[in-house]
């Protein structure tokens, strides 16, 4: 789906830009957004480094295991594929906590680390697992209880009643998250998006890559003579 959408954005951009006579803006945005992509990513390095250091400390001291065990009964409901003793449980708990409190700067490193921990349970390198999709369903629909950015924008325009939207936001974000999670649970069972089916299709198409860092006990057995079509020779390290 991402494949087609990505292509569609650019193709539609060029065609619509031509029709509406905004091609100069289309061109300018390519350079502007390429720059901002790098700026955003590099801007993450500092906080990423700090919180990765903190999370390493949690793992090494055994705090991760303790927190993970405590939170596991809750996590199991949404992430049944994640074992009780896996570090993803505790990091994910911190990620959700930071999100709920609206501490975006800390939430991103926790979230990225969660994604990386979940990747150790991924048999493939390139296909999202159910747990990863569930994490994204929750993340993309937001679980922030206090929309501080929106409130400060409103307050800068008119102080009176700036925070009146808090309760509506809490209700609306709950509805959006329940919807996202609900559809995610539904979609992961459909013929089109079921993990086993997607893996099968990618093996047939020769686009599946096996994850060497998979720590589970059920790795993918590739058919005899499998050849990766998307190996462009850039994988040597």
């Amino acid at each position: 789906m991402m494949n087609y959408l990505f292509a569609a954005f650019m193709l539609i951009g060029v065609v619509a830009g031509g029709i509406t006579g905004t091609m100069d803006a289309v061109l300018q945005n390519i350079f502007d957004f390429a720059q901002s992509g790098v700026d955003i990513a590099l801007g993450l390095i500092g906080t990423m480094a700090f919180f990765c250091g903190l999370m390493k400390l949690m793992e090494e001291s055994g705090l991760c295991d303790k927190l993970g065990k405590a939170i596991y009964p809750v996590m199991r409901l949404l992430f049944p594929d994640v074992p009780a003793d896996h570090p993803a449980n505790s990091i994910m708990a911190l990620y959700f906590a930071a999100n709920i409190l609206g501490i975006g700067n800390a939430a991103t490193p926790f979230g990225l680390k969660t994604m990386q921990e979940l990747q150790t349970l991924n048999k493939t390198k390139n296909i999202a697992t159910n747990a990863q999709c569930m994490l994204m369903a929750i993340s993309t629909t937001s679980i922030t209880l206090l929309p501080s950015t929106v409130i400060s924008i409103r307050a800068s325009i008119q102080a009176d009643g700036a925070a009146e939207i808090v309760v509506p936001v809490i209700i609306a974000t709950t509805i959006s998250t329940v919807t996202g999670v609900g559809f995610s649970l539904l979609f992961q069972r459909t013929k089109r998006w079921k993990l086993e089916n997607v893996i099968e299709r990618e093996i047939a198409a020769g686009t599946l890559e096996v994850n060497e860092d998979y720590i589970g006990d059920d790795p993918i057995v590739l058919p005899e003579g499998y050849k990766l079509k998307t190996d462009f020779g850039s994988k040597e390290e």
């Binding site: 789906m1 991402m2 494949n3 959408l5 990747q119 991924n122 390198k125 390139n126 296909i127 999202a128 990863q132 999709c133 994204m136 369903a137 993309t140 559809f183 995610s184 979609f187 992961q188 459909t190 998006w193 993990l195 997607v198 990618e202």
Partner: peptide, 8 residues
């Protein structure tokens, strides 16, 4: 990960 399945 490039195949995000049903996430979008």
């Amino acid at each position: 990960v490039t195949n995000s399945r049903h996430s979008v």
